[in-house]
């Protein structure tokens, strides 16, 4: 089968060659080639421009108003539904009113705190603690993650511990931290760091592991070795995984912070949302407790939506990883 094909091909090729020779003669052939050479550059440019135009696809982006509408309406409807059910439960008195206040009671409690002028202070205390703890975790987690990802021995030694630490609820560190540092800011930050550093480091390790070996090879061939390789190839290539790790790191920071604030309660420490929650429990004020829980939730979600989601979307879109089908 294979050999017949070859014979046929070779016969065909010979015929073509003979035809060319008899029809034009060697001199004519050469002349044609020379003019062709002159034209080729021009032809080629036009051909390429045509190919490029045919193969380029323009991805039209949705109008922003529609994007916002399609993103905000569903969650708003879901929230309205939950509030409706809550109000209904209140109305039917499934529990006594002091155990299950209505959404309006909670709103009134928030308003009261707002009018007292203390609410923003609580929120700010927690956010600044969370941000500071998170930034420190990023600094430590990034270096740790890079070392674990790139140094085999360190990875073998610390890799499993880092993954294991992620499944340890950071509230478990609170008693230990109190014994070490007493009722102080140090305790709060220690708990935040222990909660956030492993997930940031793990995110970076995962990001580095997912890098296509092709990029590393390409980087080495253009001379990106050593530190230049880390800076120009390794880190940018690992960025999507790293950002996912940062997002999770923020969630862990915030959660750990609330756990710490709830327990570490001293008059000379500033009052954060966790402490506000604990005060509500002490006074047995369910509206207060629920408004604190809501605020904690809103801050956590707000930071994720306002800071991390746009960064992540931008990074993914610029790499063509967010193409809508």
């Amino acid at each position: 089968m294979a050999s017949t094909e070859t014979k046929a091909q070779s016969a065909a090729a010979q015929t073509t060659a003979q035809d060319g020779a008899t029809a034009e003669g060697p001199a004519a052939g050469a002349a044609t080639r020379a003019t062709a050479a002159g034209d080729t550059t021009h032809d080629l440019a036009g051909l390429e421009a045509g190919l490029d135009a045919l193969e380029s696809t323009v991805v039209a982006r949705q109008p922003w108003l529609r994007t916002i509408a399609s993103k905000t309406f569903p969650p708003l409807i879901a929230i309205a539904l939950v509030l409706g059910l809550w109000q209904l439960a209140y109305h039917l008195q499934l529990k006594p009113h002091y155990l299950l206040p209505s959404p309006f009671d909670v709103a009134r409690s928030v308003q009261e705190k707002w009018l007292q002028g203390t609410l923003l202070g609580y929120v700010w205390t927690s956010i600044s603690r969370g941000a500071l703890g998170f930034l420190a975790s990023v600094a430590i987690g990034t270096v740790l993650g890079l070392v674990v990802a790139r140094v085999k021995v360190v990875r073998a030694a610390l890799g499993p511990i880092l993954s294991g630490l992620q499944s340890l609820p950071s509230v478990a560190w609170v008693p230990a931290a109190i014994i070490w540092f007493g009722l102080s800011d140090a305790t709060i930050y220690a708990v935040v760091l222990l909660g956030a550093v492993p997930s940031i480091a793990n995110g970076l390790v995962a990001g580095v592991d997912q890098i296509s070996p092709l990029y590393l090879r390409a980087g080495r061939t253009i001379g990106a070795t050593g530190l230049a390789g880390v800076r120009h190839v390794l880190l940018p290539a690992a960025l999507p995984g790293y950002i996912a790790g940062l997002k999770q790191g923020w969630a862990f920071s915030w959660r750990s912070l609330m756990a710490a604030e709830l327990i570490v309660n001293a008059p000379d420490l500033g009052t954060g949302l966790g402490q506000m929650l604990e005060q509500g429990r002490e006074t047995g004020d369910m509206s207060w407790v629920l408004s604190a829980i809501l605020l904690i939730l809103i801050v956590g979600i707000g930071i994720e939506l306002l800071i991390f989601a746009p960064i992540e979307r931008r990074v993914l879109r610029s790499r063509g990883l967010l193409v809508k089908s």
């Binding site: 092709l214 990029y215 090879r217 390409a218 061939t221 253009i222 001379g223 190839v233 940018p236 290539a237 960025l239 990074v315 610029s318 790499r319 063509g320």
Partner: peptide
């Protein structure tokens, strides 16, 4: 010196 190398995959960095 170091030769330039081109692959079957374009191997361009998507972040640039």
């Amino acid at each position: 010196g170091r030769p330039a190398l081109m692959f079957q995959e374009h191997a361009l960095f998507p972040w640039l």
